[in-house]
C-alpha cells in the first residue's frame, strides 16, 4: 500500500447530552492512502458524519475528541492549537456538504465567494483568483460565465458542482464530502459522479465520501470503510469489500441493497436496530443483530483481522467468512 495521507488511530468523539455522555465515534482506526477515494459507508446514527467533522476539527459545541490521534501528512492535528487547526481548513482539508443550498451564501455572486476563498484564505491576487475560479468552474463542468450568477440561479446539480469547485480551490490535500450527491436526481447525480471520478483521476485527489449508498461507493470509490455504531467494522479495496465482504454487517447491507439487475427475490433486511450508544454493549456492537453470533461475540470486541491484502474486518468469525457469505445470501438467515 502507498503511504497513508491521513491516518486515524483509536479516535473517539464524545457528545455531552442530557442523558449523559455518548461516544458517537468510539475507537476508529482508519487510513486514507494518498490519491485514494475512500467511501465511508454507514447507516444513520453510525457516527460517520461525526467522524468527518472530527477530521475537519469542526465539531459542535457539546462534542469533543476524547482520545486518539489524527495525523494528516505527518502532522498530528490533535496537537495543534485551535487557531492553527482552523488555518488548515480549506487549505489542507476542505469540505463539500450535502446541501450546497446552505453552504453557498445566497447574497453573493459565485465570483465573490470564490475570491473570498482564493484571496482570503489562499493569498491570491484578484486577477489570479478570477483566472483560477474560471479554471475550477471549467473543471467541474460549469461555464465560467456563470461565476457572475447568484447561487439561487443554479440548479441543484450546478450548485453541487459549484460547492465542489469551492472545495478544490486551494488544492487541498484532503477533500471530505458528506453525502455530496444524495439530494440529487439520478441523472444529475450520475453526471456529478462522473465529474468527480474524472477530477479524481486528473488531480490525483484524495477524498473521503461519507454516504449511506453502497452503489455510489461502488461507482466512485477505490477504498471502502464500513462503519457501524461508532466503529469501522470493515475496510479494504472497494472491489474486494463488495465482492467478498468479511463482516456480517457488510454482508447484510449488500443483501439488503436493491439492485436494478438480477432476480427480484425478497431482499433480506437486517432485523433490529443499532445499539443505544449511551450504554454500548461490551463485545461486538453488531452481535445483537448478527445471525452468526457466538458467545464470544457478546463479551469481547473482535480485533481487526486481515482477510486479504489491505482488507480487514473486525469479526470473530472472519476465518469462516466464505461460509458465512453463502449463508448470508439466504433471506431466511436474517429472520430472527
Amino acid at each position: 500500500m502507498t503511504t497513508a495521507l491521513l491516518s486515524v488511530s483509536d479516535l473517539a468523539v464524545t457528545y455531552r447530552t442530557q442523558a449523559g455522555l455518548v461516544a458517537a465515534v468510539d475507537g476508529v482506526n482508519l487510513e486514507v492512502p494518498a490519491g485514494a477515494m475512500l467511501g465511508l459507508v454507514g447507516e444513520s446514527g453510525c457516527g460517520k458524519t461525526t467522524l468527518a467533522r472530527a477530521l475537519m476539527g469542526v465539531l459542535p459545541g457539546n462534542a469533543r475528541v476524547s482520545r486518539g490521534r489524527i495525523v494528516l501528512d505527518g502532522t498530528d492535528l490533535q496537537a495543534l492549537s485551535a487557531a492553527k487547526r482552523r488555518a488548515l481548513l480549506w487549505r489542507d482539508i476542505s469540505f463539500v456538504p450535502q446541501s450546497s443550498m446552505n453552504s453557498l451564501d445566497p447574497v453573493y455572486r459565485m465570483r465573490t465567494q470564490m475570491r473570498e476563498v482564493l484571496c482570503g484564505r489562499g493569498d491570491l491576487s484578484r486577477g489570479a483568483a478570477d483566472t483560477r475560479a474560471a479554471d475550477l468552474f471549467q473543471a467541474v463542468g460549469l461555464n465560467p460565465v456563470r461565476l457572475n450568477d447568484f447561487p439561487h440561479q443554479f440548479s441543484g446539480g450546478m450548485r453541487q458542482r459549484a460547492a465542489i469547485a469551492l472545495a478544490l480551490a486551494l488544492h487541498p490535500k484532503l477533500v471530505i464530502a458528506d453525502e455530496p450527491v444524495t439530494a440529487l436526481d439520478v441523472i444529475v447525480q450520475r453526471q456529478v459522479l462522473d465529474m468527480l471520478r474524472r477530477l479524481g483521476e486528473d488531480m490525483n485527489l484524495t477524498a473521503i465520501f461519507v454516504t449511506h449508498d453502497i452503489a455510489v461507493v461502488a461507482y466512485l470509490c477505490t477504498v471502502t470503510a464500513v462503519m457501524y455504531a461508532g466503529r469501522i467494522v470493515e475496510y479494504g479495496p472497494t472491489a474486494d469489500v463488495l465482492a467478498r465482504p468479511a463482516h456480517p454487517y457488510t454482508m447484510g447491507l449488500m443483501n439488503a441493497f436493491p439492485d436494478l439487475e438480477g432476480p427480484t427475490q425478497d431482499l433480506a433486511p437486517i432485523e433490529g436496530s443499532p445499539p443505544d450508544l449511551h450504554t454500548p454493549p461490551t463485545g461486538c456492537r453488531f452481535a445483537a443483530r448478527c445471525p452468526f453470533v457466538q458467545p464470544v461475540c457478546t463479551t469481547t470486541y473482535p480485533a481487526p483481522t486481515d482477510v486479504a491484502p489491505d482488507h480487514w474486518a473486525a469479526c470473530h468469525r472472519v476465518g469462516e467468512a466464505e461460509t458465512l457469505r453463502a449463508q448470508a445470501t439466504e433471506a431466511a438467515t436474517w429472520q430472527s
Binding site: 441523472i187 453526471q191 461507482y219
Partner: peptide, 24 residues
C-alpha cells in the same frame, strides 16, 4: 438514460457517459 444513470452496488459496472445531458 434513467436506467443507465443508476449506479450499481458492484465495482464492475458501465461508467460510459449518459446519452442525455443537462437537467430538467
Amino acid at each position: 438514460a434513467l436506467i443507465k444513470a443508476v449506479p450499481r452496488p458492484r465495482t464492475d459496472q458501465s461508467r460510459e457517459d449518459l446519452p442525455i445531458s443537462g437537467g430538467l
